[in-house]
Amino acid sequence: MMPPVLADEETAAPPWHGSGLTATLRREWLLLTRNRANLLIGVVPTVVYLALLSTSIADLVPEVSYRGRPVGYPDFVIPALMFSALLAAAAISGTALFQERANGMALELWSYPLTRRQYIAGKLLAGSGLVLAQTVAALAVSAALFRAHWPAERWAALLCGAVLAALAFNALYLLLATLVEDVQRFTVLVNVLPPVLLFAGPSFYPFDNLGPVQQIVAAVNPVSYGVTALREALLRGFPGAWPYFLLLGLVGVVALAGVGRALVRQSRTL
């Protein structure tokens, strides 16, 4: 049998091309695009909710009172439905990070010339890209179903809010994936958290209509602020939404700092 023909001088030391960031982005892209089931899981429930809303629920509840003025229920609830798509996509991103540790890929990745900063940035950009794409898809479906007539400034504010919410909540899920060690606990958390957090806030009802206990829960529920940011963007534009945008940015930065620290801690256990 012929011995294998291998390297020559040229293949030994070709110039270095790219960086850990582009490599991480490439890997994430392949992981996301090759697993279409995850994309469907992220999008289909939201589309179903929107269909239900447009065909029946909006007729049942034509409008609600928001900040003292009447608002059409579809306009009120569309940010919450966008957020459900956002949470589902962020959960996929967090799960991917958790699985990386569980299946040993973390060890392989940290053997490459990759810095933590490049890794986190790659994960965040790719994950947030997915989150944003799914959120915008939900928004596009909503706009088509409800024949949206929002002014351009509201659209701009809504997209800006979607970007910030995608970054913040993706970072929060990455943090969750780095902090939780036990696979069962993580699985339960990642599956139970999105609906619980979505319903334990002013997503589908105005804050004032929530019960006293629900109002306390909503006050400490990060999803409340994410939904409100999008709602303010849609209903009042940048003037109403900017404090929430600031908050989302702050949450994202703090969560990312936490991810960085958790990765350092994890590397000691590899």
């Binding site: 582009t22 392949l30 990759l114």
Partner: peptide
């Protein structure tokens, strides 16, 4: 370069995709 005992791969990706990813991390277009 390391061949780890645990044999880690992105199992759902193809052989080509795994090599493509590794090439990117090792600075090869």
């Amino acid at each position: 370069a390391v061949v780890h005992q645990s044999g880690p791969f992105d199992l759902m990706l193809t052989v080509r995709d795994n090599l493509r990813t590794a090439a990117a991390f090792r600075g090869l277009p």
